[in-house]
């Protein structure tokens, strides 16, 4: 219960900060929308020529794009800003102030900063999914929606775990913000249904960086096409990533000697 209150407090701080820079908030939100529209253009052109790509029809592919957009909002709004902040703290030595607080350090550093205007991405992504479902004319059952939400949560967990692991590298090599950019650009590949990738690329995106699990599986769940086996493997993947991240974090904190902020 204490952690929930702490989370609310941290969120409140971010909201106050966003209220202070209202124009930035509006500009950021506007830019988000422009980028979402820009990303849709190639897809519109593509599906004006073809009715399906790798077995995915227009509205089905749009669901994947919607989930990609929403998760990108979560990544850029709730995961990256806070962890970028930690990298800076490690460099300056001010991470010590976090470590001496009487709460779990991973929790504290993960909730220090939220970029609230990214909510626009999340809302726009969900809107895309709803539009796609309306276009398809078949509304999913409550069970399918529940399963989809569970898988989206798992996807967010995997993203978070990957960033925690990148962050752990910051304890060893100081310059990891570039690495964060690299991972963010790899995530870009999750915007298409995983079926279009073949060979080595497909293997990497399924087993090494599980992009397929993040956006394609929730879409399949919503279309009621995801097998039980794949569902379980997705959830297991998320669990393994989360555990690995926790272990890596604890090990990093243990060997951290501080820069004497």
């Amino acid at each position: 219960m204490g952690y929930l209150r702490l989370l609310i407090q941290q969120l409140r701080m971010s909201i106050l900060l966003a209220l202070q820079y209202r124009l930035d908030f509006v500009v950021g939100a506007l830019l988000s929308l422009i980028w979402i529209a820009a990303a849709l253009v190639p897809l519109v052109v593509l599906f004006s020529q073809r009715s399906a790509v790798a077995g995915w029809r227009w509205h089905e592919a749009l669901i994947v794009v919607g989930f990609f957009t929403a998760l990108k909002g979560v990544l850029d709004g709730a995961i990256r800003p806070a962890l970028q902040d930690v990298v800076e703290r490690i460099r300056l030595g001010t991470l010590d102030y976090v470590l001496i607080k009487p709460a779990d350090a991973q929790f504290l550093v993960s909730t220090t900063r939220f970029e609230l205007f990214r909510v626009v991405d999340v809302v726009a992504g969900i809107a895309l999914v709803v539009i796609a479902l309306a276009y398809g004319g078949h509304w999913p059952s409550a069970a399918a929606i529940a399963l989809c939400l569970l898988l989206l949560f798992a996807a967010a967990l995997i993203l978070y775990a990957i960033w925690i692991m990148v962050l752990c590298l910051a304890f060893i090599a100081v310059k990891v913000d570039n690495l964060s950019f690299l991972f963010a650009s790899i995530y870009d590949a999750a915007r298409w249904p995983a079926g279009i990738y073949r060979g080595v690329v497909s293997f990497v995106f399924t087993f090494v960086i599980p992009l397929a699990v993040m956006t394609t599986y929730p879409a399949l769940a919503l279309l009621e096409r995801l097998s039980a086996q794949r569902t379980l493997s997705a959830l297991a993947t998320a669990l393994v990533f989360a555990l690995l991240a926790r272990v890596a974090w604890l090990a990093s904190i243990r060997r951290y000697t501080s820069a004497g902020g």
């Binding site: 593509l46 073809r50 790509v53 570039n178 950019f181 650009s185 870009d188 298409w192 079926g195 073949r198």
Partner: peptide, 29 residues
């Protein structure tokens, strides 16, 4: 080092390439 990372993050065309190649598998566009 920074340059190399930047080099590696220029992968948007590659992501688009894989998509369009999947499209062209069923016949040229």
């Amino acid at each position: 080092g920074e340059f190399l990372i930047w080099f590696l993050t220029t992968n948007m065309p590659l992501v688009m390439m894989l998509l369009w190649m999947a499209v062209a598998k069923d016949g040229p566009v």
